[in-house]
Structure formats: C-alpha cells, structure tokens
Design a protein around this nucleic acid. Structure first.
Length: 495
RNA sequence: GCCAGGGUGGCAGAGUCUGGCCGAACGCGUCCGCCUGCAGAGCGGAUCACCGCCGGUUCAAAUCCGGCCCCUGGCUCCA
C-alpha cells in the first residue's frame, strides 16, 4: 500500500506519485527573518522533516528546499533594534533560526535559499511574464495580470470578482484589476509602511527605510514582490514542476495562489503536483495558560524548557492536516507520552543486554506485537503522514515489551532486539526522537558514580536506614538522576 | 460577506476518503488490584461517549446525501 496525501488543490486524498518514480522534489515555504521562530514555525518544520524522513524510508531520493525571506518591510522595521540595516537585521535572525532548526533535530534541507541572493532569477522570471503578456509595468513597478491566467483562484476557491484588492492604496491606483499583485515594487521601502510594524527600540521609520536594500532591474530600481521569490527559488533549486509544496495554512491565499499563477504562466508547466498545508497551531485561549506558558512560545524557549523530544512529540501528536492546540495540558500529555516511550525503550535495551536474555526463548505475543506495530506504523504514515497514529503504534509496542519484561525472568532476546530496532527505526529514524541515539557527553564516569551512590544507598536500605536512603535518592534527583526501585533492583536514568 | 476546516468521553484525540471487525483506538485524569519500607515506574482491571441538531439513503452510518446551528482560521505581513 503506497503513500496517500491530501492535496489542498483538489481537496481530495490522492495516491502519491512523483514525476520521477525514484525521487521527490520537496519545497517548504520558510519564514520571514523578522522575528524569532515560534512553536508554530516549529510545527511546520518538524512535520516537513518527518515527511522528508518518511519519503526516504519509502525509498525515494528527496531533494528538499526551504527558503528564507530576508527582504521584507517587517525586517526593515527592526532596524536600530537588532542591526543597523535591513541586511544585518536579517542576518541576525537567520543565525537564530538556523540555531533553532538544529535544536529541533531537523534533517537538513539541501538548500536554504535567501531572496537577496536570487534577484537575477527573479528579474528573469518577471521578464518572461512581461514578454508573454502576463505582467505589465506601471511607474517602474510590475504587476501580474490575474485575468491573464485562467486558473487564478483555484487553490483558494475564490472568484477574482469577489476578492478584496491586494496591496496598498498607492499600488491599487496603478493596477488594471484590483486583484492584480506586485511582482516588483518601484523604489525603496515606504516609511509609512513601517509604522504598522514599529517595535520598541527601533530606529525612526524614515531612517530605517534608508537602509532597505534596492536592486536594479530593466524597468527601474526597486524590490521584488513577496510572491515571486518562492516561484523563482523553487524553479532554480528544484525544477519547473515540483512534487510536494508544503506551507502553512495561512499562506494559501494570496501567497500560494499567486505562486501558481506566476510559475505556470512563466513556464507553461504544472507548478506543483501536491499541495500540502500544515494547519495552524493555536494557543489555548484560557487565561491561565497565558501567564504560565506565554513565555514558552518561541522555539528556543520551548526546547529549553521541555527538551527536543517533548517538543517533537507534542508537535507530532497532532497530524499536520489537523489544527493543534498549545496548552499546558497538551504539552503535559506529550511529556508523559515521550517519557513512557523513552523508559520503555531503555527497559527493553537493558533487558536484551542482560544475562537473562536468551536466544532460545521465544515470546509469541511480543513478536506479534512487533509485527503489528510495524504494519500499523507504516499504514499510519502512508495515510497522509498521520504521525499521531504512528506514535500510538509505537506506544503499543512499548506496552508489549514492558509486559514481556514484567512477566518473565528469561527474556526473548531476538524478540526484544526486533522491538528495539523497530523503535529506533521508526521513533528515532522517522519521527526524529532520541531513541538509540545517545546524546553526546561522557556519561560513563557519571554512570559509575551513580552506581556507587546506589550501592551505598542499597546498604542503607538493607540496614533499615530509610531516611538516609531517601536522602541519597533525593540528592541524585536534584542532580537530574531519576531512581526507581524495581523487583530487579534499583534502576536509574539521566533526565 | 466570500473561502477553508472543524463539532466524538472530565481533558486531549484517532476513526469519516475505502459504510459493517466502532457496543468507538492510544493517552491524560480518576478508582481498584499486583509490586513496594516509602515514592516513582511498570503490569492487570475499572470508570468515562445516545459520535452538534433534524431528516434521508441502506440489511447496515460517527462514516454517504440534504438542511440547520455553533466554533476556528484565511480573505492585510504571517508556518
């Protein structure tokens, strides 16, 4: 059974067939580098990351491109606060964003193109559109004529006649049709446009606007429109036709609608075979949450507070195609889910490595559970990347390994190995969780020290000195070592 | 107003494309038991849903069709 996806262009579940049967061209609409990345961005990143990983698991070569918009009025509005020009402000946020991406354990895209580095390609595409009559010039600006493109409005299901006009009042007066949109904006940044985005500590709009980048084009000095950049960059780094284009739900109109019009008008080919839109992460509207969780909204803060695995588990706990809620309760649930998975995995590894594991023991139930999980996980991911169900499948396998370890004293070595490999392959390899990928650092000495402390504690317990034993346990916990007594003795894990 | 997506247990959230195994998954919470010096973790069990409302199609509907109500998002920079 192959992969099926929900294509927002048609609204249908479709079986996925890339143009080239062996490879997938994947484009993700990245963000504008004018603010720190927040959890909503992380949601998009992590889901695209898992799509990438799953496509590779299915055997495709994946070429994944993710743009960064480093030319924008909102960036200019930050001048004086985070840099002394549009370019330095953008560079500073790009650095932060790359750092955030790393912290989320994302598989790297092949390229992270920046708009500022693709002006020639953008100009070339605009020239093509002018030549073919899809665009027109007005006072040094260039607009796309939406009436020249038959399918305009198909992605967002809107009629041109009923649309609100795009762009500022000044732009509107230059347009043939109110729905036309800018491909190139003459001149620099209008200080007026910055006032809406003012920040504390930013330079006065007129001064900030001076630092905005401008570029020479055949029709005059100016700046590229927002939409044309993705068209130009995806064509440059991928192809005229790409297989999957992912982006936030909020980009459907006008951004993606305009991309289709420009690209298809310019190349004459289908722009995107499958459009996938990540639904938005909504903050809980309960007042309690805002005070306690309001400061966890950025990626950096969330990763810092909860750790990558909890953040990823939280984001993957709702399939990309459904809206998700960010609240204390939903994060707590993710935390619990992740800990159960992690503990179960650690326990299975310890059991398989123990002297009680034998290659001759066979537990049918365990082996059946492994097989069931494998097929359930595969089916879940093939069903429009349903990460929620995938996580559920892994959880069921952990329940089986726990039962096995609990129920017997002689463990099924091969069965456990297969369970462990499955958890590593799917939980670690596909969902990108830290299973089977021990985090760096030299823990071996630490382990010996912890074991030493535990042996002292064991002696105190045997002597009935529970208060001393408990103090040792509490001290270890304060250092981030969680101790649990089991029938087989004390177990511990680093948090 | 236009467009899109939703309404399933205390919470969260699968299942709707491909009607029947859904007397509705997994989990959180709560309760009981096992284990246990205590705590935690784990295991076993229990609790909790007339699947927004009305009507239709069908042997059979949470799932398909029609109407209605309500919610969220987009239509302005936005993942």
């Amino acid at each position: 059974m192959g992969l099926r996806v929900t294509n927002s262009l048609t609204g249908e579940h479709e079986s996925f067939e890339p143009a080239d049967p062996d490879s997938v061209l994947l484009y993700y609409c990245g963000l504008t580098t004018s603010d720190p990345a927040h959890l909503g961005h992380a949601r998009g990143w992590v889901h695209v990351d898992v799509m990438h990983r799953w496509l590779e698991w299915l055997g495709y070569d994946v070429r994944h491109v993710e743009n960064l918009t480093d030319l924008n009025e909102k960036i200019v509005a930050r001048v004086g606060e985070n840099g002394d020009s549009e370019a330095t402000v953008a560079a500073s946020y790009v650095g932060d964003i790359i750092r955030d991406m790393r912290s989320l354990n994302l598989r790297r895209a092949a390229v992270y193109p920046r708009v500022s580095e693709h002006i020639p390609e953008i100009i070339e595409m605009i020239e093509q559109l002018l030549e073919t009559g899809h665009a027109y010039e007005a006072n040094g600006s260039v607009y796309f004529d939406v009436t020249s493109f038959e399918g305009y409005g198909r992605l967002s299901n809107q009629d041109i006649g009923e649309m609100d006009p795009q762009g500022t009042a000044a732009e509107r007066s230059e347009k043939h049709n109110p729905a036309d949109f800018a491909l190139w904006k003459a001149g620099g940044v209008d200080p007026e446009a910055l006032t809406d985005h003012r920040h504390e500590g930013a330079a006065p709009p007129a001064q900030a606007a001076e630092t905005a980048e401008t570029f020479d084009a055949p029709w005059g000095v100016g700046r590229p429109g927002w939409h044309i950049e993705c068209s130009a960059m995806s064509t440059t780094h991928l192809d005229d036709t790409i297989d999957i284009h992912v982006g936030g739900q909020d980009l459907v109109f006008p951004h993606h609608e305009n991309e289709i019009a420009q690209s298809e008008a310019a190349t004459g080919d289908t722009f995107v075979r499958y459009w996938l839109h990540v639904r938005l992460l909504q903050a809980s509207d309960e007042e309690k949450m805002s005070s306690s969780l309001g400061n966890f909204e950025t990626v950096a803060e969330a990763v810092d507070s909860y750790g990558v695995d909890v953040v990823r588990t939280f984001l993957l706990s709702t399939a990309y195609s459904n809206p998700a809620t960010y609240s204390e309760a939903t994060v707590d649930e993710a935390e619990t889910r992740w800990h159960r998975l992690e503990r179960g995995y650690d326990r299975a590894v310890a059991a398989a490595d123990s002297a009680d594991a034998h290659s001759k023991v066979e537990d049918e139930q365990l082996r059946t559970a492994v097989a069931n999980t494998r097929s359930a996980f595969e089916a879940a991911m093939n069903n429009d990347f349903n990460t929620r169900k995938g996580l559920t499948a892994l959880r069921e396998l952990v329940a089986a390994t726990n039962s096995h370890v609990d129920a017997t004293d002689s463990y099924d070595y091969r069965g456990l190995r297969r369970a462990i490999e499955t958890l590593e392959e799917f939980g670690g390899g596909v969902l990108g969780l830290s299973l089977g990928t021990p985090d760096g650092g030299d823990v071996s000495v630490a382990e010996e020290l912890v074991e030493l402390v535990l042996s002292v504690r064991e002696r105190e317990r045997a002597a009935g000195n529970y208060d001393r034993a408990d103090r040792l346990r509490a001290d270890l916990e304060a250092l981030g070592v969680e101790v649990q007594d089991t029938a087989d003795g004390a177990e511990y894990r680093f948090e």
